[in-house]
Design a protein around this nucleic acid. Structure first.
Length: 224
DNA sequence: CGTATTTGACCGGCGC
DNA sequence: GCGCCGGTCAAATACG
């Protein structure tokens, strides 16, 4: 809780690439990124541990998109691997899933999806944004509940989903939906990123001055 | 008192 | 058409 309050934004801002706060047992194990509903997984394909910083393989070439198989594929959003793919990162960016049959454009509206699988006892990792929890749901295949967060920033409708791994409750799967269209409330320092978590974060907040119709107005409040 | 969080209810989609 | 599942909202509550 109260992870949104950063008394000292210039202090050690625990991030994926920056300094890991010694307090939290933060350990990046898996990192999946998929856009436009593209599902990424490797497991028995490749071990993407080479592109530790900028050499991202073309997802259209090396990744399996809009497909599933091994790993824990259960959600309608994607699959994630585990086991031996530790310390591997997967970036999937399917250039608009062309074969989205009747998959509805739900994901298309979102346009961005990032999933992190980390080994942490705490699911609340301060990524520099303020998140307001708006729901909790228990998934059928998972003994652990799933938490839904929404960006507290006005105008920004990025959603975040946090759930623990079905098999290993030690792992936390955080899925981000959407792109922040505002500056980070806190000071985000991802200049160096000596670790494996590259500037993947950098490609998220594409500050596009011309994008005004992203994923906002979808269905404000149709219910009630 | 204000704000964030909690928990159940409600809704939409999909499968059968 | 009904049931299941996942996602979201909203009233109530807890906490600061």
């Amino acid at each position: 809780m109260n992870f949104h309050q950063n008394p000292n934004p210039n202090m050690t801002h625990n991030h994926f690439g920056g300094n890991i706060d010694p307090l939290m047992d933060f350990e990046l194990s898996d990192f999946l990124v998929f856009e436009d509903g593209g599902v990424v997984l490797d497991h028995h394909h490749h071990q993407f541990d080479s592109f530790s910083s900028q050499s991202f393989p073309s997802p259209e070439n090396n990744f399996v998109s809009s497909n599933d198989g091994g790993g824990g594929c259960d959600d309608n959003y994607g699959c994630y691997t585990d086991d031996q793919t530790i310390n591997s990162m997967m970036i999937g960016a399917t250039s608009t899933n062309t074969n989205n049959k009747n998959r509805k454009n739900k994901m298309d509206e979102v346009g961005h999806r990032v999933a992190f699988k980390t080994k942490s006892e705490l699911e609340i990792m301060d990524d520099g944004f303020k998140w307001r929890k708006y729901g909790k749901k228990s998934v059928k295949n998972s003994p652990n509940p799933r938490n839904y967060y929404k960006c507290s920033s006005g105008g920004c409708n990025v959603k975040k989903r946090v759930e623990r791994d079905r098999e290993d409750s030690s792992y936390v799967i955080t899925t981000y939906d959407g792109v922040h269209n505002h500056e980070t409330p806190g000071v985000l320092y991802y200049n160096q990123m000596p670790l494996m978590a590259p500037n993947a974060w950098n490609l998220q907040p594409n500050h596009h001055p011309s994008h005004s119709h992203s994923n906002s107005h979808s269905h404000s409040s149709s219910s009630s």
